[in-house]
Write a protein that binds this DNA or RNA. Structure first.
Lengths: 144, 144
DNA sequence: TTGCAAGTTCAAGTCGACTTGAGGTCAAGA
DNA sequence: TCTTGACCTCAAGTCGACTTGAACTTGCAA
């Protein structure tokens, strides 16, 4: 199959051209050459981009992902790293679940003011002592 | 009980003085006066800070939290808003759970390269098509 | 051949929640 | 009274992942 134009990669991957340039600059992907001044990409870049998306979704930073794509063709994905991430996710999930339950309760609680609800106050204490854990940064959906 | 010095609030709440000043500037908390140039806080500020921590943990932004503390003493916490957040959390949890399971599988998968594992490839496709959902920003633990 | 949409580079901007630094003030203990 | 360390203000910096803008070049359809 033919090499792809940046717009085509963008279209097929759902990733903006500006992002693709950015990723190339970061060394996450690479173009196989140029037609004039314009980048050409091997179709394989699509798989690589999927891999990057996966990594991001799993909570890896671009830098961490770059490390996995270290020198040498195929991605070197460390199984330990994966387990570690899985466990990290697990902890996050637990925190969020507790939070969700708290919120649900607070939403349904009959007390006139949340401050009068024992459950709410309990959650409050937990949050205050940091047990619930601080800012899980808000999911920021990309504009694509 | 006596009014508190900013250092004391910091110490009791586990929130840095710089953050307290920042919160005051944002209108999230307020000091009751000054001793010389130094802020004095009512002990109630601690409950307010707990509330802020809770809101943050639930995924509200500081601006959203500020809205809840609208004019008029007690926090006006909208039950609808809480349910909405709870549902949002629920969706996030689902995404993360899928991700975690995928990671676990990938970590345990016997295939020599992840690329040869059908499950991995399936997850990959999901990520590529955005089904898994993009960057849940990484939890960034405060330095405190 | 020409027009122009789409590509290119490079620097700077954005968002949220803070932190840091410089330079100044002052309450309180010795 | 003097010292000093904690506090103050205000501006700027940080982090991550991109986006945006300005200024420029060019492949390709008409």
């Amino acid at each position: 199959m033919k090499d792809l134009d940046i717009a085509e990669v963008a279209q097929r991957s759902g990733i903006r051209a500006s992002t693709l340039r950015f990723y190339e600059e970061k060394g996450l992907i690479s173009s196989v050459g140029r037609r004039g001044m314009r980048r050409l990409f091997d179709p394989d870049v699509l798989e690589r981009l999927a891999l990057i998306a996966l990594g991001r979704a799993a909570g890896f930073s671009l830098d961490e992902i770059a490390l996995m794509f270290a020198p040498g063709g195929r991605p070197r994905i460390d199984r330990e790293m994966l387990s570690a991430k899985a466990e990290e996710l697990d902890r996050t999930i637990r925190r969020l679940s507790a939070m969700r339950d708290g919120l649900k309760h607070a939403a349904d609680c009959p007390e006139p003011s949340h401050m009068d609800c024992p459950t709410f106050r309990r959650i409050l204490r937990a949050a205050a002592t940091g047990m619930i854990g601080a800012p899980t940064k808000r999911p920021r959906r990309p504009l694509n």
